[in-house]
Design a protein around this nucleic acid. Structure first.
Lengths: 234, 234
DNA sequence: TAATGATTCGAACGAACGTTCGGTAACCTC
DNA sequence: GAGGTTACCGAACGTTCGTTCGAATCATTA
C-alpha cells in the first residue's frame, strides 16, 4: 500500500481543530474524504523530498513546489514539518507490520515464518523505497512524544522478529544470540536502500530468497568454526 | 587512529592560500604543525556534532560552541562546512583502509582474510563510533567533486571486500553472488551504529567473531535450501 | 625592536528557514 | 442564493543559517 492510498487520520487527534474523518454520508465508497486523499498525496511528495535531501535538508518550500501548492496552503493539512515526518513514518511502519501479520497467519514452521518475515520486509521495502528510506534513515530524527511513539512501533517490529528467531532456535535446538541475529538480519535487509538498483539487482522475491538462504544457513548450521577447536586454522 | 591524531593536510590542495605542512624544521618530532593539531581537534568536535544532529541539522555555531572558538575563527582551518564533512569522511575512510591493508599483509587463507576484514571493520567502527556514523549516515550528502572523491574511496573499499570474497569462493569451490554477499555483509557490519550499546553488547573482537561465523556459515554451506529441490518445505 | 605572518574575534551580510495571519475563492447545505 | 465551512494563497514575521570582512592579538624571526 503506497502513501497515496493511506487510510484516514484517526479521530483521536484532530488537526488544527479540525474533526477527524469527514464526508461519511453520500457516495458509496466515501471512506476517505477529499481531505484525506489530498493529505496522502502530500505525504507521498514529502517522502520523495525527504528521501532525496534528508529531513533537515528538505525545506517546506521544496515540498510546496513539488506538490504544486502554496507554502501556506500546506499547513492546512498538518501541524508542522515534524508532524509530516511523523505521519510518514507511522503509516509506513504500521502498514508493513499489518501486512506481515496478515501473511504470518497461515504459515507453519519456524523457518518458513522467518522466510515470510524477510520476504515481506523486502517486498514492501523495494515497492516503497522512498518512504522506507525515510523511515530507516531518519531513524532518530523525531524527538519527544512523536519520537517515542515511532520508537515503540519499532520495538514492536523488532520483537516480532526476535520471537520468530527464538521459535526457530527452539524448534531446531540451536544456540545463538537472538539479539545479534535479529540485528544482523535487520542490517542486511535495511541496508538495501543504500545500494539496490532495479536495473542490476534481483527483484524483491528473488532477493528475499537469497538473503533468507544466506541468513538461515548462517544461523542453522552448527558452530563448528570456533577457532579454538578448529584444526585447519593457522 | 582517532581524528585528533590525524596526519597533516596534503600539500596538494592548499587552504585559503595557505601552504600545506609547516614547521618542519626545529623540534624533533614536529611532523604535525600547530595548525594540523588544531584542525584535527576541530574535526573531532565536528564529527561529534554531525553524529548527534546530522550534517544538515548541525550548525557552525554548534561547532564553535563545542570547540570553544569563535564562529569566524573556525574558517581559518577549513573552507566551508562541506569541506569539514569531506575532511572527516576522507580521513576516516583512508585510515580504515590503511589499517586493513596492514593487517592483510601477513594473513593466509581466504577465510582467514575475510575474518580479518570483518574484525578490522568492527574494531575501527566501535573505537571511532562517531566518525564512522558520520561516514556511514552522511553517505550521499557530499556532491560534486568532494562527493565523487569519497565515492571513489568507497568503491575501493568495496572492491577489496569483493576480491576477498571471490577468493574465498574460488578456494572453496562455492557458488554465490559476490555483489549480494558483499552488500549483505556491509549491511550487517555498518548497521551496528544504530544499535550497539557497549553496556549490553559484546566488544569488537567478540562481535567480529560472531558476525564472521554468522556470515561465513551462510556463505560456506551448500545451498541445499533451494526450494525447488527441498523436500521438507511445504 | 621592528616587521611579518599566523591566529582569533566581533559584527555584520544576505539568504533561507518554519510558521502565521488575514483575506479570498470554492464548495456544500438549506 | 444566502450562510457557513473548507481549501487555499500572498505576504510577511522573527529566527537561524553559512560565510565574510576588517581589525586586533599572538608568536616568530630578522
Amino acid at each position: 500500500m503506497a502513501l497515496q492510498d493511506m487510510e484516514t487520520r484517526l479521530p483521536g487527534e484532530p488537526h488544527n481543530g479540525r474533526k477527524g474523518r469527514t464526508s461519511i454520508q453520500g457516495g458509496d465508497e466515501a471512506v476517505d474524504s477529499r481531505f484525506d486523499r489530498r493529505l496522502a498525496k502530500l505525504l507521498y511528495h514529502a517522502a520523495h523530498i525527504f528521501c532525496e535531501k534528508g529531513y533537515e535538508g528538505a525545506s517546506m518550500r521544496d515540498l510546496s513546489r513539488a506538490a504544486g501548492m502554496s507554502l501556506a496552503g500546506l499547513y492546512h493539512y498538518f501541524d508542522s514539518k515534524e508532524d509530516l515526518l511523523y505521519l510518514i513514518q507511522k503509516h509506513t511502519f504500521r502498514t508493513i507490520i499489518e501486512r506481515l501479520q496478515e501473511r504470518l497467519k497461515d504459515a507453519k514452521g519456524a523457518e518458513q515464518r522467518v522466510r515470510i518475515f524477510i520476504e515481506n520486509h523486502l517486498e514492501y521495502f523495494l515497492a516503497n523505497k522512498e518512504a522506507m528510506k525515510v523511515l530507516t534513515h531518519e531513524d532518530d530524527t523525531l524527538k519527544n512524544g512523536r519520537g517515542a511513539e515511532i520508537r515503540a512501533i519499532k520495538r514492536e517490529y523488532y520483537k516480532i522478529c526476535l520471537d520468530l528467531l527464538e521459535d526457530l532456535r527452539r524448534e531446531k535446538g540451536l544456540q545463538f544470540s537472538g539479539r545479534l541475529a535479529v540485528l544482523g538480519l535487520f542490517g542486511m535487509i535495511n541496508w538495501i536502500y543504500t545500494w539496490h538498483n532495479p536495473r542490476v539487482d534481483l527483484d524483491a522475491g528473488a532477493m528475499a530468497e537469497e538473503m533468507s538462504n544466506l541468513f538461515l544457513r548462517g544461523v542453522l548450521n552448527p558452530g563448528k568454526t570456533k577457532r579454538k577447536i578448529a584444526k585447519t586454522n593457522a
